[in-house]
Write a protein that binds this DNA or RNA. Structure first.
Lengths: 194, 194
DNA sequence: TTTTTTGTTGATTGACGAGTCAATAAACTT
DNA sequence: AAGTTTATTGACTCGTCAATCAACAAAAAA
């Protein structure tokens, strides 16, 4: 049975299963067996490919983060003007790929993981830094000295909307969620429109 | 040694210890022994007063929530006018009593708990509902039909700022945090000033 | 003063779960 | 063909921890 070249396939399956299970259970208290089972293999194999459960968590985080990054980059290439780019970044945060139950649940739990695991904290900081500089790049020409606080505020709204969504039930409404953040943006920009 | 009337004292000590330990460890993976030790008693006694660990968590949540509620109510009695009351509510969220490391850490983890434990979810919903109606009461006269979305947005900023604070290190700066939320409020209200 | 209630803990139980190991087998290398 | 690497798992170890129990002590009630 052993076909060679399984490693990337197994790893990808495990990463996906990790995210799904964390989202399903709603906490980091998922067993390696649960994850492995969902990924269609034994827990021993999971340990074989990832040294530890923590490694699995970190890989899952990196995966979500890189999907997120790709989505933002993609949105940016299609956007024009400072304001357009701002909107694009905000919208990307609530795109169909990112703003899903399981992913939202995973985010929340990664935040908790970052309290304990330095590596996880670092990853989250990288994400925050990127979001921040993306926003600042377009915000500075529009808001000058106040750009920093606006970026901070926008970031907080986005994270807050994610957090609150985790408490709701039913399918997330990305459009509505994005509306809350865009609303903030519009109102702030109005102060500089002329 | 057994002095009568220990129950409330022991329970209070446990609740306090629970919050501190969750904040310190940064997750819900605290053992009953850890909590009991910090509260100065055996784990058996902790189980004697609270039936289970989950009960302890819920009691800790209720405690934080009631402190929070008291703080908001207090701030409201001293505030004048719709705008004043709005600011008071926002500020209360970042008061010295609420916006502390351990409490912030506990909040984050209670949010996670709410994913799993229905009782915890209910408690969090009650808090959200109160915040919402407090904001709406003062927002409606100022923003009319848009009051709902503003309340939603303001709530998201507040939660977002809490969330982000959990990632930072060092003593939380309540003033700066409140500034982010107030900034949002001011900007939105400007749209209705005349 | 007996009895009951309240406070308290050390020791134990029972379950669960991360990580390891030994064994098996297919696929490549030489 | 012999040897090595890669894939795969069932069984096992070892630790941890929530929850319970048995036992002891002091206070309050009878």
């Amino acid at each position: 049975m052993p076909k060679v070249g399984m490693e990337p396939i197994r790893k990808a399956a495990l990463v996906k299963a990790t995210i799904v299970e964390i989202g399903r259970v709603g906490s980091l208290d998922v067993t390696v067996s649960q994850i492995a089972k969902r990924a269609g293999m034994s827990s021993a194999l999971a340990h074989h490919y990832f040294g530890s459960k923590e490694d699995m968590f970190l890989a899952a985080m990196r995966h979500i983060l890189s999907l997120y990054g790709a989505e933002v980059r993609g949105a940016l290439t299609a956007a024009h003007g400072h304001e357009g780019r701002l909107r694009a970044v905000v919208l990307a945060n609530f795109s169909a790929g990112n703003f899903r139950r399981e992913v939202i649940g995973a985010w929340l739990n990664f935040w908790v993981l970052a309290q304990t695991v330095p590596q996880a904290r670092r990853l989250l900081r990288v994400y925050q830094g990127r979001l921040r500089s993306n926003l600042l790049a377009s915000l500075r020409p529009l808001a000058g000295a106040r750009a920093t606080e606006l970026a901070e505020g926008l970031g907080a709204v986005i994270d807050g909307v994610y957090l609150r969504e985790a408490l709701k039930s039913g399918a997330p409404d990305g459009r509505a969620a994005a509306g809350v953040a865009l609303n903030y943006l519009n109102s702030q920009l109005k102060d500089f429109s002329k």
